[in-house]
Amino acid sequence: MPDQLIYAIEVFFNGLMAGVLYALVALGFVLIYKASGIFNYAQGVMALFAAMTLVGVMEGQVPFAHLINAVLGTKVHHFGWHLPALVGIVSTVLVMVVLAWLVQRVIFKHLVGQEPIILFMATIGLAYFMEGLGDMMWGSEIKKLDVGLPQGINLWIDEATYNIFDYGFFIDNLDIVATIIAITLVGSLVIFAQYTKEGRAMRAVADDHQAALSVGVSLNFIWIMVWSVAGFVALVAGIMWGTKSGVQFSLSLIALKALPVLMLGGFTSIPGAIVGGLIIGVGEKLFEFLVGPLIGGATENWFAYVLALLLLVFRPQGLFGEKIIERV
């Protein structure tokens, strides 16, 4: 087999893994969008915030330490404990639930019935607010996140492929774990939506707010629940990306990567988010590998957008989205 083709296959698999991570972020978007019609731009910042909180709790940082020090002139920074990952994750989930409740209570309760684009802009405001809040609470330096996930090259695959192609594929253990976790997460979300009472209520709300209200579903509860679930998905995404490249500002930019995924797959479709994520992940890696060197590289920044843009011109609802019907 020619070398180029083998490299391309390796790039393909790495793209697939990256795509899973994009899909994970996109999933959070789809959940909120389906249930409340809100396009949550803040999803990426939520992932960053969740990861920061996790690190902060595990390392025993004092929240708002900088602020307290600046105002009171003290020198507090750490409580001096180190918590196991599980405790950190549980308390971060609690924080995300409280956040979901606050977001619903303080912001979106007052914006019910507004145009979607207004809601979208409100989430941009929320993203800014949370970005500032996260930095203020936990400090803006790059943090290392280690919850005990395996990292580094997978030797087994390296060896197996070396025996076949004479060239060992580099595939990160973390990516494999991420894929498994993402599949589990998606599976459990689907089961949750199909077979539990709350899941059914959630689908009812997604279908028709008023009809759901009239059969006694509490919109408020469902929305808080959905935001909490999205917060949890954000936490998982935050852990994956945070372990991979450190908890830092650029983590919030994965939201920007997830947007074309959504456009490609359709805003309302969970399978669409996953397929879209895989297409974008593979597409951008292959494009960078094949065409990138010819036109100056770093095409990953825009390839996904241009691909999605071109697709939208032909299929405005995305690959799996519901057909848009407009009435006057």
Binding site: G125, L126, Y128, F129, E131, D135
Partner: peptide, 10 residues
Amino acid sequence: EFMIVGFLII
């Protein structure tokens, strides 16, 4: 400033 801008938008 980030917090204030975001808050004001909302």
